[in-house]
Protein backbone atom coordinates (compact mmCIF):
# COMPACT_ATOMS: atom_id res chain seq x y z
CA UNK A 1 0.00 0.00 0.00
CA UNK A 2 1.25 3.46 -0.89
CA UNK A 3 0.21 6.75 0.63
CA UNK A 4 0.64 9.74 -1.70
CA UNK A 5 -0.44 13.34 -1.91
CA UNK A 6 -0.75 14.43 -5.53
CA UNK A 7 -2.22 17.33 -7.45
CA UNK A 8 -5.60 16.50 -8.94
CA UNK A 9 -4.17 16.78 -12.46
CA UNK A 10 -1.63 13.96 -11.96
CA UNK A 11 -2.58 10.90 -13.97
CA UNK A 12 -2.31 7.42 -12.49
CA UNK A 13 0.53 6.76 -14.97
CA UNK A 14 2.56 9.76 -13.81
CA UNK A 15 1.96 8.89 -10.16
CA UNK A 16 3.20 5.33 -10.74
CA UNK A 17 6.25 6.34 -12.73
CA UNK A 18 7.36 9.63 -11.17
CA UNK A 19 6.26 9.24 -7.56
CA UNK A 20 6.49 5.49 -6.94
CA UNK A 21 9.33 4.73 -9.40
CA UNK A 22 7.24 1.94 -10.92
CA UNK A 23 8.41 2.50 -14.47
CA UNK A 24 7.03 -0.71 -15.94
CA UNK A 25 3.98 1.11 -17.26
CA UNK A 26 5.24 3.17 -20.21
CA UNK A 27 4.20 6.57 -21.51
CA UNK A 28 3.80 6.20 -25.25
CA UNK A 29 1.11 8.49 -26.62
CA UNK A 30 -0.29 9.71 -23.27
CA UNK A 31 -3.71 9.81 -25.02
CA UNK A 32 -5.07 6.29 -24.59
CA UNK A 33 -4.21 5.28 -28.12
CA UNK A 34 -1.19 3.00 -27.73
CA UNK A 35 -1.88 0.92 -24.59
CA UNK A 36 1.74 0.99 -23.33
CA UNK A 37 0.50 2.31 -19.97
CA UNK A 38 -1.99 -0.53 -19.37
CA UNK A 39 -2.32 -1.61 -15.72
CA UNK A 40 -4.98 -3.50 -13.79
CA UNK A 41 -7.26 -1.59 -11.45
CA UNK A 42 -9.15 -3.98 -9.16
CA UNK A 43 -8.38 -6.67 -11.76
CA UNK A 44 -9.68 -4.74 -14.74
CA UNK A 45 -7.35 -3.45 -17.48
CA UNK A 46 -7.11 0.31 -17.69
CA UNK A 47 -5.02 2.80 -19.62
CA UNK A 48 -3.36 4.58 -16.72
CA UNK A 49 -2.73 7.76 -18.74
CA UNK A 50 -6.48 8.33 -18.98
CA UNK A 51 -7.39 8.35 -15.33
CA UNK A 52 -6.45 10.69 -12.53
CA UNK A 53 -4.53 9.21 -9.60
CA UNK A 54 -7.03 10.79 -7.17
CA UNK A 55 -9.85 8.86 -8.82
CA UNK A 56 -8.12 5.56 -7.92
CA UNK A 57 -7.85 6.31 -4.21
CA UNK A 58 -8.17 3.03 -2.29
CA UNK A 59 -8.08 0.78 -5.34
CA UNK A 60 -5.77 -2.15 -5.96
CA UNK A 61 -3.41 -1.36 -8.84
CA UNK A 62 -1.36 -4.12 -10.48
CA UNK A 63 1.56 -3.11 -12.69
CA UNK A 64 3.88 -5.45 -14.58
CA UNK A 65 6.22 -5.30 -11.57
CA UNK A 66 3.50 -7.01 -9.55
CA UNK A 67 3.07 -10.03 -11.82
CA UNK A 68 6.12 -11.94 -10.66
CA UNK A 69 6.04 -14.18 -7.62
CA UNK A 70 9.51 -13.80 -6.13
CA UNK A 71 11.89 -14.76 -8.93
CA UNK A 72 9.20 -16.58 -10.89
CA UNK A 73 7.82 -14.82 -13.94
CA UNK A 74 4.11 -14.92 -14.73
CA UNK A 75 3.12 -17.47 -17.39
CA UNK A 76 2.35 -14.63 -19.82
CA UNK A 77 5.78 -13.07 -19.26
CA UNK A 78 7.39 -16.47 -19.91
CA UNK A 79 5.35 -16.83 -23.08
CA UNK A 80 6.42 -13.42 -24.38
CA UNK A 81 10.07 -14.40 -23.92
CA UNK A 82 9.67 -17.85 -25.43
CA UNK A 83 7.78 -16.50 -28.45
CA UNK A 84 10.11 -13.51 -28.89
CA UNK A 85 7.01 -11.29 -28.85
CA UNK A 86 8.83 -7.96 -28.99
CA UNK A 87 11.60 -6.07 -30.66
CA UNK A 88 12.23 -2.75 -28.93
CA UNK A 89 10.15 -3.78 -25.93
CA UNK A 90 8.54 -0.41 -25.25
CA UNK A 91 4.98 -1.68 -25.63
CA UNK A 92 5.67 -5.02 -23.95
CA UNK A 93 4.64 -4.36 -20.37
CA UNK A 94 1.35 -2.89 -21.62
CA UNK A 95 0.88 -5.85 -23.95
CA UNK A 96 1.50 -8.26 -21.09
CA UNK A 97 -0.90 -6.52 -18.69
CA UNK A 98 -3.54 -6.39 -21.39
CA UNK A 99 -2.92 -10.06 -22.21
CA UNK A 100 -3.29 -11.09 -18.57
CA UNK A 101 -6.68 -9.33 -18.45
CA UNK A 102 -7.68 -10.68 -21.86
CA UNK A 103 -7.03 -14.24 -20.65
CA UNK A 104 -8.89 -13.53 -17.44
CA UNK A 105 -11.86 -12.24 -19.45
CA UNK A 106 -11.92 -15.49 -21.43
CA UNK A 107 -11.30 -13.79 -24.78
CA UNK A 108 -8.60 -16.06 -26.15
CA UNK A 109 -10.71 -18.73 -27.85
CA UNK A 110 -9.11 -18.23 -31.26
CA UNK A 111 -6.35 -16.17 -32.86
CA UNK A 112 -8.98 -13.84 -34.32
CA UNK A 113 -10.52 -13.34 -30.91
CA UNK A 114 -7.09 -12.60 -29.42
CA UNK A 115 -6.40 -10.03 -32.15
CA UNK A 116 -9.72 -8.29 -31.52
CA UNK A 117 -9.42 -8.26 -27.74
CA UNK A 118 -5.79 -7.15 -27.65
CA UNK A 119 -6.39 -4.41 -30.25
CA UNK A 120 -6.05 -1.64 -27.69
CA UNK A 121 -2.30 -2.26 -27.59
CA UNK A 122 -0.18 -1.11 -30.50
CA UNK A 123 3.29 -2.40 -31.39
CA UNK A 124 5.32 -0.12 -33.62
CA UNK A 125 7.79 -2.89 -34.35
CA UNK A 126 4.94 -4.97 -35.76
CA UNK A 127 5.49 -8.05 -33.63
CA UNK A 128 1.80 -8.90 -33.72
CA UNK A 129 2.10 -12.51 -34.97
CA UNK A 130 4.43 -13.38 -32.11
CA UNK A 131 2.30 -11.45 -29.63
CA UNK A 132 -0.74 -13.50 -30.66
CA UNK A 133 1.32 -16.68 -30.24
CA UNK A 134 2.43 -15.55 -26.79
CA UNK A 135 -1.09 -14.71 -25.65
CA UNK A 136 -2.32 -18.10 -26.87
CA UNK A 137 0.50 -19.85 -24.96
CA UNK A 138 -0.06 -17.67 -21.93
CA UNK A 139 -3.74 -18.55 -21.89
CA UNK A 140 -2.86 -22.25 -21.88
CA UNK A 141 -0.33 -21.93 -19.09
CA UNK A 142 -1.80 -19.19 -16.93
CA UNK A 143 -3.44 -20.02 -13.63
CA UNK A 144 -7.04 -20.87 -14.53
CA UNK A 145 -6.01 -21.67 -18.10
CA UNK A 146 -7.90 -18.74 -19.56
CA UNK A 147 -11.20 -20.12 -18.32
CA UNK A 148 -12.54 -16.65 -17.61
CA UNK A 149 -12.95 -14.72 -14.42
CA UNK A 150 -14.15 -17.76 -12.51
CA UNK A 151 -10.74 -19.32 -13.05
CA UNK A 152 -8.85 -16.50 -11.40
Amino acid sequence: MHRLTVEARVTLLDALRDRLALTGAKKGCDRGECGACTVLVDGRRVKSCMTLAVMEDGRRITTVEGLTRGDRLHAVQEAFIRRDAFQCGFCTSGQIMSAVACIDEGRTGSDDEIREWISGNLCRCGCYPNIVDAVRDGARNAPGGGAGEAGR
Binding site: T11, R31, K47, M50, T51, L52, M55
Partner: peptide
Protein backbone atom coordinates in the same frame (compact mmCIF):
# COMPACT_ATOMS: atom_id res chain seq x y z
CA UNK B 1 -18.29 16.01 -14.31
CA UNK B 2 -15.88 13.10 -14.67
CA UNK B 3 -16.74 9.39 -14.71
CA UNK B 4 -14.46 7.06 -16.70
CA UNK B 5 -12.11 9.90 -17.55
CA UNK B 6 -11.20 8.42 -20.94
CA UNK B 7 -12.46 11.52 -22.77
CA UNK B 8 -12.07 14.45 -20.38
CA UNK B 9 -8.42 13.73 -19.51
CA UNK B 10 -7.48 13.80 -23.21
CA UNK B 11 -9.38 17.03 -23.82
CA UNK B 12 -7.69 18.62 -20.81
CA UNK B 13 -4.21 17.48 -21.88
CA UNK B 14 -4.79 18.85 -25.36
CA UNK B 15 -6.02 22.16 -23.97
CA UNK B 16 -9.40 21.81 -25.66
CA UNK B 17 -11.15 22.00 -22.28
CA UNK B 18 -9.79 23.50 -19.08
CA UNK B 19 -12.31 22.97 -16.27
CA UNK B 20 -11.39 24.63 -12.95
CA UNK B 21 -13.41 22.06 -11.02
CA UNK B 22 -13.79 18.35 -11.79
CA UNK B 23 -16.50 16.47 -9.90
CA UNK B 24 -15.98 12.70 -9.75
CA UNK B 25 -19.36 10.95 -10.06
CA UNK B 26 -18.06 7.38 -9.82
Amino acid sequence: FIAGGTELTNLMKDGVLAPDLVVDVN
